[in-house]
């Protein structure tokens, strides 16, 4: 059963064109010329109840604008959408009860007051029955380990604590859908892990549908079976995360650091590598080599290279998300 349906969503922002040249500041005041920017340009997808979907794209691709239409904040220029059966921007207040929203960059908590008072107000606003509220608050406090700072004013919380507070605020009234807009931005490793565990947990136990925008590939890998990628306001990939990796970035990257004082240049030492290995980048003190795991096992590749070059340190990594998205988009351009 699909719980979110977006069809041909378009959002155009209009702003006054700035005059240039002499007296530009004054002329801008009187100009009627405007520039239109299409932030979202015909986005369609459907999401089923209980899914966790990663909604990805580079900065300015239109992710947040899409989320803002689905949460009812923005009215689209054209196109339609339903969220749990409602058109979000026509039924803001009713839609608000079905969705929980967390913006990584913005908080819905009351800055000057203890965290607990924000929760109490949410309890009142969403008319949560008292026993239900107490049970949910206790559960969330436990799961997000908020006991130590429930009575602390929000302005004194660390970013990690505030984000946990915001997640709890969004889940207190048990919404069917949770929209998370960059929930792990700026968090340290431990805090990120806690967020991910929480999202996994509520999706498993409550069947909450989660739509997640992020720049962190680890978030996606850990949580999302499916991803939708947009760029320049259009959907450029919609499918299983595994597929994306296989299709666009099957290789691993091996960074090596060579022993100082090696006289022969790294390039010479690495010349004539077998198929499946390719030198991506050379530096004075090392190199980056791409490994295609379909052809060479990464472990074998490391042994081979260590045999040729005096390696003192190495790391194996996966290509980053922006890199993959660039490839996805490049492929899309190629087809067009």
């Amino acid at each position: 059963m699909s719980i979110i349906e977006a069809r041909d969503l378009v959002k155009t922002f209009r702003r006054t064109k700035r005059a240039e040249g002499r007296f530009s500041a004054v002329r801008t005041l009187f100009t009627r010329e405007t520039v239109d920017t299409k932030a979202v340009d015909g986005v369609s997808f459907t999401i089923d109840e209980g899914e966790i979907v990663g909604y990805l794209g580079p900065n300015g691709a239109g992710k947040s604008t899409t989320i803002k239409m689905l949460t009812g904040i923005l009215v689209p220029t054209s196109g339609s959408a339903t969220v749990a059966g409602l058109v979000p921007w026509d039924n803001r207040e009713r839609n608000a009860r079905n969705i929980g929203v967390v913006f990584g960059q913005r908080s819905q908590l009351w800055w000057d007051l203890p965290l607990d008072e924000s929760f109490q107000l949410i309890g009142t606003m969403y008319q949560i029955p008292p026993e239900r509220f107490q049970a949910n608050l206790a559960m969330l406090t436990e799961l997000l380990d908020m006991e130590p700072f429930l009575q602390t004013p929000v302005r004194q919380l660390s970013l990690g604590q505030r984000m946990r507070g915001d997640l709890a605020a969004a889940m207190l009234y048990e919404p069917r859908i949770l929209f998370l807009d960059e929930p792990t931005v700026g968090l340290d490793v431990v805090a990120k892990e806690r967020m991910r565990t929480f999202i996994e947990e509520i999706n498993r136990t409550r069947q909450t549908t989660v739509v997640l925008t992020t720049h962190d590939l680890d978030d996606v890998e850990r949580l999302c079976r499916r991803i939708v990628i947009i760029d320049h306001g259009r959907v450029v990939f919609d499918g299983e995360t595994q597929d994306l990796r296989h299709r666009f970035a099957p290789h691993r990257l091996l960074d090596i650091v060579v022993e100082p004082g090696t006289t022969v240049p790294v390039a010479t030492l690495l010349a004539g590598l077998p198929p499946g290995l390719a030198v991506m980048d050379e530096r004075e003190a090392g190199a980056t080599i791409s490994i295609d795991p379909e052809i060479v096992r990464p472990a074998d590749a490391i042994a081979l290279i260590a045999g040729r070059v005096p390696v003192i340190d190495l790391t194996v990594r996966e290509p980053d998300l922006d890199g993959i998205i660039r490839q996805v988009y490049a492929a899309e351009e190629g087809l067009a």
Binding site: I73, E93, A96, F103, R106
Partner: peptide, 13 residues
């Protein structure tokens, strides 16, 4: 400040 986004996702006008 853009906080209007938060106001609009609350179940109140």
């Amino acid at each position: 400040s853009g906080k209007v986004a938060i106001d609009l996702i609350r179940p109140m006008g």
